[in-house]
Design a protein around this nucleic acid. Sequence first.
DNA 1: TTGGAAAATTAACAGTGTTAAGTATATTTG
DNA 2: CAAATATACTTAACACTGTTAATTTTCCAA
Lengths: 207, 207
Amino acid sequence: MGIKERKLKHKEDLKQSILDAAKKLFIKEGYEATSIRKIAAEIEFSPTTIYLYYKDKAAISHALHQEGFKLLASQFTILNYIENPFERLKAMGRVYMQFALENNDFYELMFNREEPLVCVEDHWEEGEQAFSLLVMSVRACQQAGYFTQFDAEAFSMFIWSTMHGLCTLKIKGHLEHVTRNKMILQNVPDVFTHTFETFIATLEKLR
Amino acid sequence: MGIKERKLKHKEDLKQSILDAAKKLFIKEGYEATSIRKIAAEIEFSPTTIYLYYKDKAAISHALHQEGFKLLASQFTILNYIENPFERLKAMGRVYMQFALENNDFYELMFNREEPLVCVEDHWEEGEQAFSLLVMSVRACQQAGYFTQFDAEAFSMFIWSTMHGLCTLKIKGHLEHVTRNKMILQNVPDVFTHTFETFIATLEKLR
DNA sequence: TTGGAAAATTAACAGTGTTAAGTATATTTG
DNA sequence: CAAATATACTTAACACTGTTAATTTTCCAA
């Protein structure tokens, strides 16, 4: 059965190659520019070969989407080294922001596109796992006297909303658009960070 | 010069017809499905005629985007009837949420798409105007003793982030996804509204 | 060596935005 | 009034997109 395994291995390899090529194109040129034909050209196969390994483009989007969550999860690992719960929550926000800024195509795919989610039907494990981490941090904060009058999950949802909104506005350029032309917050060097700090300041008062 | 004016009128009419057709398709079938060819078929002209009235598809997107802001602004008018500043701010949030829910294609175009903004270069008047309304509401709240330790504009940005994030998560189905499968907030009939109320509760504590 | 399965390809369909070139239809001018 | 010109619109085409059916190539086992 050695040969059969090798074939299977090869099949897995090609599937991975496709994903790698897609990832490369995706990071360099964004989602729109990542076409099946370009991926095929990258790995030097015909476009239709892709369909032997992925059902359709949404399946590739979903795979990329999962790569994104892996990356985010790896960035979150440093949070384990932060003892103070509120400091950890703050750090979590900062990591989330940095991830969104540095990988805005991934961020877009993970949270603002519908394509990858049509694959997942109704069991979005990656997202749920990341959310759990937030809820755990919030619970730890509650142990330390923060947000005690709130339900941990509802409060987590509120935090996620704020962070997601802020990152999305930043990525789409709306933060800069509004501040620059309305001659608002001109003295603030970075509206993105400044808004985050305003948010943190409100949270700090809730203990 | 009567004839020349009539011709100009006709030209404006056709431009409006194109926009109306685009709007109709857009509302019924969403952004992706609103193609130049379908718009052309709707008004019974050839696709290339569209280009005599709009530079490209982004220009049509921008026109639709402006229609969206007009609609939102009209929804905001009822706020004038609310005296209490904090009540007005809450109502503003609710109107924003309702607008996002009922016109999610418009919302997408107004805040999550880049196409319409390439037209606007760096003077996004509609967005800036809506933001001013928020800042004014926040200032009124400050007069009433709320958020006094914050900068009105920075605080407004925080509020917008939260509302935008919440609406975006809702529209993309992420709220439901997370709560349903994590067996979280199951007792809450509407997570969207519930998260908003959690947000309002935090704001209420900042006076 | 040959038969058959698996893997990859070619060709095609139906669609997209967009442009250049051509054709009617008015309007202005000689 | 007829010819020249400007305006409005269309046809045909280009270069793409995702996706499928039919076909060819490759490779392993009998």
